[in-house]
């Protein structure tokens, strides 16, 4: 019963857990959690607990990891409200701005989601009712010499801090809009 290979297989378990603990990207960590589950199943099975192994494989590895991917996907996101553009311009400042926003958010493993609204009023309403985290609108041409073409208003303070730190592009001005965190009627 005490075969030598059992010791080597059991030693794989702390190895996989160390790789999991030192992983910073949440999606990578979830896939490595699945790897840890696969190795744990092997350990359970060679020690004689086939039922525990089957439960770990089906619930711990398959169901839990899939549900966590859904949870991380829907929480690690910045929803940016924009106005619906009638004429899409491929080489505009806006695509440049979205690229630099995505680059800034990538460092924090966040995702950018663009939400289109038909007019300015519904855009502001969505920001106040906390449907979106930030709005990005084209600036009025009061000062034509000004570099910034867009105005980004962010209601989450941490996102504002990240953007202030990371966003070096001059396509937009950043403003923080404090919105009271209260129940809406």
């Amino acid at each position: 019963m005490t075969d030598k290979y059992i010791y080597i297989i059991v030693a794989l378990l702390p190895l996989a857990s160390f790789i999991l603990v030192f992983q910073v990207n949440p999606y990578h960590a979830l896939v490595i959690r699945a790897i840890l589950g696969a190795i744990a199943v092997l350990v359970y099975v060679i020690l004689g607990a086939a039922d525990v192994g089957l439960t770990e494989a089906l619930v711990g590895t398959m169901l839990a990891v899939t549900l966590y991917v859904i949870a991380v996907r829907s929480s690690l996101v910045m929803r940016l409200g924009i106005l619906k553009q009638n004429t899409p311009q491929p080489e505009s400042y806006f695509t440049e701005l979205v690229t630099s926003l995505k680059k800034a958010l990538d460092k924090y493993h966040l995702r950018l989601e663009l939400v289109e609204y038909p007019d300015n009023q519904s855009l502001q309403q969505a920001l106040v009712s906390q449907e979106i985290h930030a709005t990005c609108i084209e600036q009025q041409h009061s000062q034509p010499n000004l570099e910034a073409k867009y105005q980004t208003a962010i209601r989450v303070h941490r996102l504002f801090e990240i953007m202030q730190q990371e966003l070096t592009a001059s396509e937009t001005t950043l403003t923080y809009v404090p919105i009271a965190n209260q129940e809406h009627q």
């Binding site: 199943v41 099975v45 086939a50 192994g53 089957l54 494989a57 089906l58």
Partner: peptide, 8 residues
């Protein structure tokens, strides 16, 4: 053990 392996 074999049945568990096949299911996984």
């Amino acid at each position: 053990i074999g049945v568990v392996a096949v299911i996984i």
